[in-house]
Design a protein around this nucleic acid. Structure first.
Ligand SMILES: [Zn+2]
Ligand SMILES: [Zn+2]
Ligand SMILES: [Zn+2]
Ligand SMILES: [Zn+2]
Lengths: 145, 145
DNA sequence: TCGTAAATAGAATTTATTTCTATTTAGATA
DNA sequence: TATCTAAATAGAAATAAATTCTATTTACGA
């Protein structure tokens, strides 16, 4: 189990329960975003008894603590993704295979400038997500179902 | 009633029913995004009998036809907004009064470049929304509840 | 080892959204 | 203008994601 994650849990005052660690373990192994129900299915292979509310609660707590990022998907369902990159950045999300890749580009400064100058408003946060087909998915024309 | 909207409905093969026109009328009058239920409440002042499914169906049809834009909100609820600006652009959303304002800035080209060059992927769409306090709301410290 | 706050299971619930069916209506056509 | 038909609607019912609740269990500091 990843040492950094252990430390992260500590600093969030979250106990290192077997279930919580397993959820993280599942997400670490994936480079795709997962719905709570998908995490649940994977968890059921490891635990004989595991409730869906436990999955929801943990994913949300971990996202609030910054350990996971929440994907704001056009389908409006919940998805979570464990991103190792701690700096501010955005993501390219493959809508076919659900792989997530980091983007370095972020227009925060330009946005800030425009909002301040033209709208006389104040930026609190910005959301940017790019959807598309990753390298593999745009080469093979096979679309996952 | 706005002539352009009439024409837009025609081109989408959507009938100009009183309810549909009233929904548009309500949205034209607002510079804020509205949830289906909020539109419904306003509609109930105009029609003695008006079903919520009618609201949902119309908002969705109009959004699919490009007449309305759907706000992808972090709270994952549905919101719609009638934006007069037909060109590609993004929005600044006031989290206090829910006012929506157009932004001219869009990093599409830079994103496109990075995804193509570094990730070898293909961009299908991008989502950008800026949240903050509009001019009025950042001046008056009164936060709506 | 013990005590306690945190975490969990499992059932029940909430609520936004969608589906279904019978009825009505807009708007084209004769 | 009267008629016709596909589109639109009402209202009830269903769906399903997400959350709440309560009793029980557990992690972990003292
Ligand atoms: Zn892919
Ligand atoms: Zn950014
Ligand atoms: Zn405002
Ligand atoms: Zn853009």
């Amino acid at each position: 189990m990843n040492k950094d994650l252990y430390v992260a849990l500590k600093s969030l005052n979250l106990k290192a329960t077997p279930k919580r660690l397993a959820i993280l373990d599942i997400l670490v192994a994936e480079s795709v975003y997962l719905a709570p129900e998908e995490v649940w299915r994977k968890m059921r292979k490891r635990f004989k008894s595991i409730g869906l509310p436990t999955i929801y609660r943990n994913l949300e707590d971990l996202a609030n603590g910054g350990v996971l990022i929440k994907i704001i998907h056009p389908d409006r369902k919940l998805y979570y993704y464990l991103c190792a990159n701690a700096d501010h950045h955005h993501h390219f999300i493959c809508i076919n295979c659900k792989k997530v890749e980091d983007l370095s580009y972020c227009g925060a400064e330009e946005i800030e400038k425009e909002v301040k100058k033209n709208l006389k408003g104040r930026v609190i946060s910005h959301l940017m997500q790019v959807f598309g087909l990753c390298k593999d998915c745009s080469v093979s024309r096979t679309i996952a179902t």
